[in-house]
Write a protein that binds this DNA or RNA. Structure first.
Lengths: 351, 351
DNA sequence: TTGTATGCGTTATCAT
DNA sequence: ATGATAACGCATACAA
């Protein structure tokens, strides 16, 4: 089952040369005679020799492996369609650059403050942290002396590379869109726990409503469950000055609220408009299809790969923060209101 | 950014002893005096020392890393809810046993016959291969001198550990269930490409229909797309001797067929009964909820972890094949028919 | 109880 | 153009 694999010595012997020569040939270093090269390569093939990663790592202190850390677990992240597309690009690019991907979940509840094995023991050349996760953990990770990248998240104290989407800007666009459709009273739901993306999206919402002079009727509400959100909605869409539009922090939430609202007999968008965020696959399978914000996941993954490789190759580079644009995806979950206090925007007003 | 981490030498110096002593303390080998132990541990803490995986790997030829290979890519597998639950258990168990998980996709189209880097270069102590994948790749992998486990798949030439669910038996149960509900003409759809699970499930279907003397009216159909399956269904449910039940090879396929059928105005189960396989989350979100076969994913993952660890610890063990039972999950996508040529099974016929 | 010495497989420096 | 050799960090056999 495990006859120890051939080493460089075996190859040297078979090719009738020294191990130094073998190494040079395999790494294209130093000019080795054509004939010797051929002998070496033939020997490698015959012996099915491949350089051992352990030996090389020890010598070069490079593992050619990149750690991807998820919070709280790999499975949780992958179940999330949004991340699986980013992962796919990351995987493609990094594999192409000849890196292994060591994925690990970080379950804060079981691990407490302990660092992950792969980080402690130097099994990786760099670390990518994906997904919402508590700030103190991000900080902790950012302190280990390893190339480090926050992907689809960030921390305020900006001494670490990060790639994020522009949730702030996108929600401003969304609010302006809703405003253009005649909405004046809107609420946005988010979760109670801390999360970079939710926070920046909500800040965009707040900035835009303030800018439009809508502070009075608009607010961000923190909820624990989507049921809680539904209750709030039902309560707020009746009365003399009802909420007419509801923004959410992601498609998951929006789709679930949609279902629950429908189950209670509330019609969307007739009685209330709802918007999502992320433009995941199932956002066009909802009834009605969700108006949402699309993030270019392919770019996110590709840029993530570039960023971590860049830092590995030159750790002295300045901190690099990249923001990827998002765009509004208009579908059918937002209704156009006839709004008395403002002329409506029609395509034909342009003419 | 990268001040090289402390080595065992630094610890030895700080603890005023030799590196051998440090090593012994850290590995609880050889009896070292209490006082020395404390000095060593204190030094480790002070220096934030952790043994380097490269050094240890080289010396012990163990990487403490297990490779999990997916076909054709990690992302593809994870998008599949079914696997994410198995992965979660695997991750828990193997992490608890102090192993890293190196996940890699194997995209046969780009890689041709080349072995994965992590396998070639000995970055892993063992390999788990998950998911449907061409037989020749499984064989290729089974030949590398590494502990190897097929999880949720298998190969005929049985010289490799495997854990599978009993699709053969489960489909027999399913056919008998359908038969009990009065169905006599049924078809089962599968994909054209080779796949262990699809094949064994279909073989169960065929065995059961033969056993029940239904060969004439029952058959397995290979399709490329679910649209193709729909056309077949529509064609076969009309006429004098119509198909009344359709079995599929997984919930994904069943759910999609369900949607497509509904879109064409075919009512399920009134006009045709449909069954799934896997009992994934969304099988109860379909309309109607799918009658399907449930597989105990938690057990599958847990047993997978045990199996690979067992083989790593003792490669001389005999080949171990484990079959995990599956159970029929009755929901609402199968209709009970009034069947003339056979007394119906009622709960009260038992009395 | 603890220290010395060796070798794991590789790369790189320096001879030849 | 090629070879001898040191060094990487660690675990272990053996010596003290």
């Amino acid at each position: 089952m495990t006859p120890s694999p051939p080493s460089i010595k075996d190859v040297a012997k078979a090719a009738n040369c020294s191990i130094a020569t073998v190494s040079c040939v395999l790494n294209n270093r130093g000019r080795i005679g054509k004939a010797t090269q051929k002998r070496v390569r033939d020997a490698c093939k015959k012996l099915k020799y491949f350089p051992s990663s352990a030996g090389r790592s020890l010598r070069s202190s490079k593992t050619e492996t990149i750690g991807i850390i998820f919070y709280p677990s790999c499975a949780d992240i992958f179940r999330n369609i949004f991340y699986s597309e980013i992962m796919e690009c990351l995987e493609n690019q990094l594999t192409k650059a000849n890196y292994n991907l060591l994925r690990a979940g970080y379950d804060i509840s079981t691990r407490k403050q302990e660092l992950l094995k792969c980080i402690r023991e130097g099994c990786v050349d760099g670390v990518i942290l994906m997904g919402g996760c508590p700030d103190d953990f991000k900080h902790k990770l950012s302190e280990v002396p390893l190339p480090f990248l926050l992907l689809d998240t960030d921390i305020s104290s900006g001494t670490v590379d990060s790639i994020t989407s522009d949730g702030f800007r996108a929600m401003i666009d969304m609010v302006e869109y809703l405003h253009g459709k005649g909405h004046r009273r809107m609420v946005m739901f988010r979760h109670r726990y801390d999360n970079f993306n939710e926070t920046s999206r909500c800040m965009g919402f707040e900035a835009a409503t303030r800018q439009l002079g809508l502070e009075g009727g608009c607010e961000v509400l923190k909820v624990e469950t989507n049921d809680e959100a539904c209750s709030e909605i039902i309560q707020r869409i009746s009365g003399s000055n009802p909420v007419t539009a509801v923004a959410t922090v992601n498609d998951d939430m929006a789709a679930d609220i949609l279902r629950k609202l429908l189950a209670k007999g509330i019609r969307v968008p007739e009685q209330v408009s709802i918007t999502g965020y992320d433009d995941t696959e199932f956002s066009h399978d909802t009834h009605p299809p969700l108006t949402t914000v699309g993030i270019d996941r392919k770019t996110m993954g590709a840029e993530g790969a570039k960023a971590i490789l860049r830092r590995i190759n030159d750790p002295s580079l300045p901190i690099h923060k990249l923001t990827i644009a998002s765009e509004l995806v208009e579908r059918e979950s937002v209704r156009e209101l006839v709004d008395p206090d403002k002329p409506r925007f029609h395509e034909n007003t342009q003419c």
